[in-house]
Simulated assay, not measured.
Amino acid sequence: MAEQTMLEPVVDLAGLRELARDMVVISNRRVPLVPNIGVIGGRHSVLVVETGMGPRNAETVLKFAADYAKGRKLYLTTTHFHPEHAFGARTFAGEATYLINRDQAEDLRLKGPGYVGMFRGLGELVARQLEGVELGQPDIVYDQAYDLDLGGRVVQLRATGRAHSKGDQVVQVPDADVLFTGDLVEAGQFAIFPWFPPHDTDVSGTRWLAVMRRLADDRPRVVVPGHGDVGDAQLLADVRDYLQLLRDETWARRDSAMSEETIVEEISALMIARHPEWAGREWIEKGVGCLCAEHCA
């Protein structure tokens, strides 16, 4: 992840883009460790999706959202607990109602402190954004599904079950046919597998693939990935197809009793040849490790 410290992970409002009526995304401009951030409006309320990493980024997002809301009630949700997505939630306390699924709330409580330390170790530019960070506490915790009425627009929050993390959530806006995926989907990048045994092994390649099959079947008009350029349903198909190929090629080699080191070498070469333009090549190895562990599970 050394390449991720080359640019400071700062939310930049220059990345603002309109997705539909009363709905914008603050694009991450392909800056590592900056998420795509959604702001979704209805008659009486506005929902913010993601906070950016740490209090300073969150202050930028909150100020923009408050100005955008023009007096409407503010809500906040995050697609999963990882630092660039959720570690600014404390800044919204008292200004917005924070709602997430139960598994994500548990991830935040149990794993959040460890991830603060881990991400600070990624370099000075990342550590700077985490100065003074305090983990947020959700105001509303739901189990599997929550329909949020913003006034004339209902936003559907759906826990997907364990995939990229244990508490993944997608955010659907049916009237505009827009889907926010968090890190279940990245554009122009190999899938991020936070496979860090023995510290964190919640990511599941097989369950992630099952989630992507369901999402791809819905074919939304607009897909907002966790990182990278906004796209359409092809983004979902790309991730589905990559995960399926990664699983099949890993398991075929595992069946032949090939060493994991050799599997990584062969599959990395195969995937890079298929997607030479994709970033995040270091995540291929993590994906192979995860799927090797799941092979006989």
Rank of each mutant, 00 (worst) to 15 (best):
D183F: 15
L270S: 06
R274A: 05
L243Q: 06
R221M: 05
R281P: 01
V203K: 04
P198Y: 08
G205C: 00
G231Q: 03
R221D: 01
S165L: 11
W278T: 01
A187M: 07
P225L: 04
R281G: 14
G161F: 04
K166D: 11
R253H: 00
R219S: 12
I272W: 02
M212S: 04
R281C: 03
V171C: 06
D183S: 14
G228V: 01
A191L: 13
L235R: 06
V222W: 01
G188K: 02
R254D: 08
S204D: 07
P198L: 11
I263P: 03
R162T: 10
W278H: 13
S204T: 12
I272Y: 05
T250S: 01
S165G: 11
R247T: 08
D238A: 15
A159M: 01
L245M: 09
V185G: 03
D177I: 01
G280Q: 06
F193Y: 14
V154Q: 13
Q244I: 01
W195G: 04
V185N: 06
K166G: 10
S268T: 15
G161C: 10
Q234W: 11
V154H: 05
A237T: 06
E249C: 08
R247V: 07
R254A: 15
M271V: 04
A216W: 08
G205M: 04
R162S: 10
E266H: 11
M212D: 05
A159D: 02
G188E: 03
G226W: 04
A279F: 10
V154N: 12
Q169Y: 05
L150P: 02
